[in-house]
């Protein structure tokens, strides 16, 4: 995920150069995070209250984002939806990346049969399409929030593992690892102190990317009616329940879609425009 960097304007500060796009993207992400945390204090109406006489009401004063198919306040529902979409995705991606990265580094450093077995098994897991996996698991055990988080995490562990392992394998061939090894260092030291600091940047970028995938998958599942169940509603579920408003171009169906796009595009742009450490050769 790299865009030509030359095109974006960059500013430098404290030995790092920042792109304007990256800063804006980071602010958007920060804003959504705050919304997710503070949603209960921000919503003007309770999410269950029917406040409009009409359904699919337009945007107007008091109902800034219009009303949904039952006449409920969309603004409140979208703000609360952020909680579920961001919260569930963040929990899932944290579990997925933590397990995947730790396993990947262990496999790379240890090698041998452990590496072979782990890689073979997780590669097999990877050859189950993610939506399908979600579909089957949800069919089997229902879709409570913990189940959703775990399912999403399990789906993305193989990818995180593969990514981290590939990076760690590269680092593992470096001489400084060999030096540490013949010094007699333990596997834990090798992983935590020698390998991790060298792969942390790409791993964080991968974290962001996987967060986007999970947001999209969660929204997709909810859109199919297999994600969060009513009365809870994340952004995908909001689109689903208001899809009837599509012919009228109701804000109730447009706004949650835009919210998803706004979040995922921001994350993608942030990853592509991370601050760069300035390494100038001396003139």
């Amino acid at each position: 995920m790299t865009i030509a960097h030359a095109t974006t304007s960059r500013r430098s500060f404290l030995g790092h150069s920042y792109s304007v796009v990256g800063v804006v993207a980071a602010l958007v992400i920060l804003a959504w995070t705050l919304v997710a945390i503070l949603a209960p204090y921000l919503i003007p109406h309770s999410i269950g209250d029917i406040v409009d006489d009409d359904y699919f009401g337009p945007m107007r004063q008091g109902l800034w984002l219009g009303s949904d198919y039952l006449g409920r306040d969309m603004l409140s529902r979208v703000l609360m939806g952020a909680r579920y979409t961001v919260g569930i995705s963040l929990a899932a991606v944290s579990i997925a990346c933590f397990s995947g990265v730790v396993l990947g580094m262990i496999a790379a450093v240890t090698g041998g049969w452990l590496d072979t077995c782990l890689s073979r098994f997780l590669d097999a897991m990877n050859s189950i399409p993610s939506k399908l996996f979600g579909l089957v698991v949800v069919a089997a055990v229902g879709s409570s929030i913990p189940v959703l988080i775990l399912t999403l995490a399990v789906i993305y562990i193989p990818g995180a593992y593969r990514f981290a392992r590939a990076l760690a394998v590269n680092i593992n061939t470096m001489d400084f690892i060999t030096v540490a090894r013949v010094r007699g260092e333990s596997t834990a030291y090798l992983i935590g102190s020698e390998i991790l600091p060298n792969i942390i940047r790409p791993v964080l970028a991968d974290f962001g990317l996987r967060f986007v995938f999970i947001v999209l998958l969660l929204s997709g599942l909810s859109f199919l009616g297999l994600g969060l169940q009513p009365p809870l509603a994340d952004w995908g579920a909001l689109v689903r329940e208001n899809i009837g408003g599509l012919p009228f171009v109701a804000p109730a169906v447009i706004v949650p879609s835009l919210a998803i796009a706004c979040l995922t595009i921001s994350v993608n742009l942030l990853i592509d425009n991370l601050p760069q450490k300035i390494r100038d050769r001396d003139a």
Partner: peptide, 22 residues
């Protein structure tokens, strides 16, 4: 041209399929 193609494709990848459909 390259930048347009890149930005459009990143945009499409970043949104759920159902949004492209809607």
């Amino acid at each position: 041209y390259d930048r347009t193609v890149t930005i459009l494709s990143i945009g499409i990848i970043s949104v759920p399929e159902f949004m492209v459909a809607t």
